[in-house]
Simulated scan of single mutants.
Amino acid sequence: MKKWSSKGSQISSEEYGRGDVDWELRPGGMIVQKRHVGSGSDSNSERFITIKVSHGSYRHQITVDSHSTFGDLKTVLRRQTGLETREQRLLFKGKEKENDEWLHMAGVNDMSKLILMEDPATKERKLEEMKKKNTLAAGEALAEIRAEVDKLSEKVAAVEGGVSGGKRVEEKEVNLLTELLMMQLLKLDAIETDIDSKLQRRTQVVRVQKLVDTLDNLKARISNPLNQTTKKIVSSATAKWEAFDSGFGSLIPPTSKLTISSTKITHDWELFD
């Protein structure tokens, strides 16, 4: 029975089963002779290497067995980056490396530099999923805000009816409604929308702004009640004068033509005794 070592040399069945030789299973599934600490250049300190991996703006230093594969390195990087091994692309000296390639065979040494990139297809799929998730979240947020604005709109209408009917309305009640509406504007501004939901957000923004304007006008009417009373009196008097002027009893006398008799002046003077 023959077995192959990592260097391609054959291992006899007698040597494989011999008790004075220690064997170990490499990550790639290959059985090799185990190295021991203190055996010259094969010491434990020289067996492990540190690799610098660049991932976008991030920098990682990974310590691995020098005889590991690039697939083993991806497994370690998965814990560091959160990327699954199938989503990773490792480049060394400008070339992408396969999972079954050995680090030492590719020339990767201590402090070598590798570049980690996310698979483009995977990245695009994640962006699509994120877009759908954001669209759903935006729709739910808009529906919640719309329901809240409906409630506030009813309260604004009630306050407006009370002020118009002469009911006493506290100014702090108007201020509270204004503050609640402004909070809805802040929520609308924080929503990340796409083309479909942008129009819905704009509709709610305009609606809230109109309600705030209505409350500002109501606040002015509450702050100046005498001014409103004067306006009502003037309006009523103006209506009465217009009715009086246009009909019977007008104060403006009708225009009449006066007949003036002319006197003829002559030079025939009478002499009085």
Rank of each mutant, 00 (worst) to 15 (best):
Trp4Asn: 01
Ser6Glu: 03
Ile11Thr: 00
Ser13Asn: 12
Glu15Pro: 00
Gly17Ser: 04
Gly17Asp: 04
Gly19Cys: 07
Val21Trp: 02
Asp22Val: 14
Glu24Phe: 02
Glu24Ala: 01
Ile31Met: 00
Val32Asp: 00
Gln33Leu: 01
Lys34Cys: 01
Arg35Val: 04
His36Cys: 10
His36Asp: 08
Ser39Asn: 08
Ser41Ile: 14
Asp42Thr: 13
Glu46Thr: 15
Glu46Lys: 14
His60Arg: 08
Gln61Ser: 08
Ile62Phe: 11
Thr63Cys: 09
Asp65Arg: 00
Thr69Ala: 05
Phe70Pro: 02
Phe70Ile: 03
Leu73Cys: 03
Arg79Glu: 15
Thr81Ile: 04
Glu87Pro: 03
Gln88Ile: 02
Lys93Ser: 15
Lys95His: 12
Trp102Pro: 00
Leu103Gly: 00
Gly107Trp: 06
Asp110Thr: 03
Asp110Tyr: 14
Met111Leu: 10
Met111Ile: 09
Ser112Pro: 02
Lys113Asn: 10
Ile115Arg: 04
Leu116Tyr: 00
Glu118Met: 07
Asp119Ser: 09
Asp119Pro: 03
Pro120Asp: 08
Lys123Asp: 12
Lys123Phe: 14
Leu127Phe: 07
Leu127Glu: 05
Leu136Lys: 03
Gly139Asp: 02
Ala141Val: 03
Ala141Gly: 04
Val149Lys: 03
Asp150Phe: 10
Glu154Ala: 10
Glu154Gly: 15
Lys155Gly: 11
Val156Cys: 04
Ala157Pro: 09
Ala157Asp: 10
Ala158Thr: 13
Ala158Phe: 06
Gly161Asn: 10
Ser164Met: 14
Ser164Tyr: 09
Glu173His: 08
Thr178Met: 15
Thr178Asp: 13
Glu179Ala: 12
Leu180Arg: 04
Gln184Met: 13
Lys187Ala: 03
Leu188Gln: 01
Glu192Thr: 02
Glu192Pro: 00
Thr193Ala: 00
Ser197Gly: 05
Lys198Tyr: 06
Lys198Glu: 02
Arg201His: 03
Arg202Ile: 04
Arg207Asp: 02
Arg207Val: 03
Gln209Phe: 13
Lys210Pro: 01
Lys210His: 10
Thr214Ser: 12
Asp216Ala: 05
Leu218Phe: 03
Lys219Val: 05
Ala220Asp: 14
Arg221Tyr: 10
Ser223Trp: 15
Asn224Ser: 15
Leu226His: 14
Thr229Arg: 14
Lys231Trp: 14
Ser235Val: 06
Ser235Cys: 12
Ala239Phe: 07
Lys240Phe: 12
Trp241Gly: 07
Asp245Met: 10
Ser246Asn: 06
Gly247Trp: 11
Gly247Met: 09
Gly247Asp: 15
Leu251Ser: 09
Ile252Asn: 07
Ile252Tyr: 10
Thr255His: 12
Lys257Leu: 15
Ile260Asp: 14
Ile260Val: 06
Ser261Ile: 13
Ser261Trp: 13
Ile265Arg: 06
Asp268Phe: 12
Glu270Cys: 13
Asp273Leu: 14
